[in-house]
Simulated assay, not measured.
Amino acid sequence: MQIIRDDLRGPEIAALLEAHLADFAPHSPPESRHALDLDGLRRPEVHFYTAWEDGELLGCGAFKRLDARHAELKSMRTDSRHLRRGVARALLTRLIAEARAAGFERLSLETGSVAHFVPARHFYAAAGFAECGPFGDYVEDPYSVFMTRRL
């Protein structure tokens, strides 16, 4: 598996991000969906990475600068054909290392609160993230769970 910093130009990436949005749309109202679109992920404060194997996109993930010491994890997604192969863990490990190397001291995330997102919350907890209050521009939301970890 090769993980690279990506410019989000490939059609495979757009398709994976569309699947990402479609997957959680039925579980949260529009005002509680905080995923970035392609243009948002291309902003200079976002570091976007993809995982590839034999020319096939396996997954993606990003972090976004909130301030000089704090970044937010964004757009973690594994292609459904590659689940349970360690793609998400490899991406998260790389994102944590890259955020640390960029000088961030904290990495936080927002995920859903309903049953659909239980596996994601367990995954992040196993990686050292703990529940916290809203951060950045977020506010309390019954459809959101906020998590953070020190780097």
Rank of each mutant, 00 (worst) to 15 (best):
A51C: 08
A71S: 03
R65P: 00
E110L: 03
G55V: 08
K74G: 05
L8H: 13
R69H: 06
L73W: 05
S80N: 08
G61R: 00
R33D: 13
D79L: 04
L58D: 04
H82D: 04
L91R: 00
A19G: 13
H47E: 12
V87C: 01
A22G: 14
L8V: 14
K74N: 02
A25H: 13
T93N: 09
L66Y: 01
H70F: 06
D7V: 11
E12I: 13
R43M: 11
Y49M: 11
A15Y: 14
E98W: 02
E105F: 03
V46P: 01
D7Q: 15
S108R: 03
H20I: 14
R33L: 13
D79R: 04
G40L: 05
L8R: 12
D79W: 06
A99D: 00
D7K: 14
E45S: 05
I13K: 07
G40C: 05
E12K: 10
L16D: 07
R85P: 00
L41H: 10
H34K: 13
D7S: 15
E45Q: 07
T93A: 07
A71I: 02
R106Q: 02
D37N: 10
D23E: 14
R65T: 08
W52R: 05
E45F: 02
A68Q: 10
G59E: 00
R94G: 00
C60P: 07
D37M: 09
E18K: 13
D67I: 03
E98S: 08
A101G: 06
A88G: 03
A19I: 15
R94A: 06
R5C: 13
G86C: 06
S80D: 13
T50K: 07
G10N: 15
K64Q: 11
A102D: 10
S28E: 14
R69A: 05
T93L: 08
A90Y: 07
R85I: 04
D54A: 12
A97G: 06
A22K: 15
